[in-house]
Amino acid sequence: MKSRPPATSDTSEAATTETLRRQYESGAMVEELVAASGMSSGTVLQRLHDAGTLMRTSWQTRRMRQDPRARRRLAAHLRTLYEQHGKTLIEIAAAAGETRRGARRLLVEAGGTVRTTQQSLRMRAAARAAERHKLALSLRKKYAAGASVPELAEEANYSVATVYRLLHAADSRMRPQHGHGPSGTSGSRS
C-alpha cells in the first residue's frame, strides 16, 4: 500500500511554483532561478510551464533588463554571487547573460569592488585549503572508526601517501603498522 505524501509538500510546491513565476515575470532569468532555488533547470522550466508562465525570448529579457529596477535587482544579485559565493567576473557574466565588461559595470553599480587577480587567487587558495581541511577531518573520523588507510585512499580516490599526509595534518592518532620489517611476516597495513 502506497503512503501518501504529506499535505505540506503540495502547498510548498505550489508556493515554490508561484514564487518562481513571480520572480521570472519580474525579470529573473531561468539560470538565476536555478541558482537561487537549487532545482535543475528542467524542474524550474516545468514549474514555470505548469504555472502558465509566458516565456520570454533573450531579446525580450534584455529589453526588460533596461528597466532601472530590474537592472538594480540584477546588479545586487551579481554582487552577492561575486562577494559571498566567490564567483569570478566570467562566472557572473555567464549567469547574467552579459559580457565580462557588462558584468563588471553592474557589479560596480551595485557598490561592489572588483578584486585584483592576487585577491582572487588568495581567495581560491583559502577555499581549497578549507576543503582540504574538511576532507582531512572526515578521513580522521573514518580512520578512528576503524577504516584502514588503503580503504580510505580508495574511497577518496587519493594515493595512500596523500591519505597519510591528510591524516597527519588532521592530528590523527595513528595505529601501529604490523607486518613490516625484516622478519617478512605479512599483515595488513593500517
Rank of each mutant, 00 (worst) to 15 (best):
L20A: 13
E98N: 02
E32D: 04
R101S: 11
Y158A: 01
P68K: 06
A110N: 05
A95C: 08
S26W: 10
Q66I: 10
R56P: 02
A28V: 02
M1A: 03
D50Q: 14
G179L: 02
G102Q: 06
L33D: 08
E13F: 10
E109M: 13
S120D: 05
E25I: 10
E25K: 05
L78H: 00
E83M: 07
G102A: 12
R104L: 03
H168E: 09
V44R: 02
E151K: 08
M1E: 04
H178V: 15
A96N: 01
V34C: 10
L152A: 06
R65H: 15
L107D: 08
T17A: 09
Y164P: 01
A7F: 09
A156H: 04
T43S: 13
R165M: 04
H168Q: 11
A127V: 11
L20D: 14
S12D: 12
R56F: 08
P6H: 11
Q23Y: 13
K134D: 15
H85A: 12
L48V: 14
E13T: 11
R62Q: 03
I90S: 09
E155D: 14
Q177L: 15
R22Y: 06
E13S: 14
R104C: 03
G184N: 12
E31Y: 06
K134N: 05
Q84A: 09
L74K: 05
Q84M: 07
L33N: 14
K134F: 06
H180I: 15
A36V: 08
R101D: 15
P150S: 13
A136T: 09
A130V: 05
S138H: 00
T113H: 05
K87I: 00
G38P: 04
A126S: 07
T8A: 12
G184V: 11
R115E: 09
P176W: 09
Q60L: 01
S138L: 03
R79L: 03
Q60T: 06
H133L: 13
K87N: 01
A35H: 12
R71H: 05
L45W: 08
R100N: 05
V114A: 07
Q46D: 15
V44C: 12
E32Y: 05
S37N: 04
S138C: 01
E98C: 11
T113V: 15
T16N: 13
A96R: 00
A94M: 01
S186K: 13
A14P: 01
A95V: 10
V114L: 13
K2G: 09
E83D: 15
R4W: 11
G112L: 04
Q119I: 04
R71P: 00
P6M: 04
L20V: 12
L139F: 02
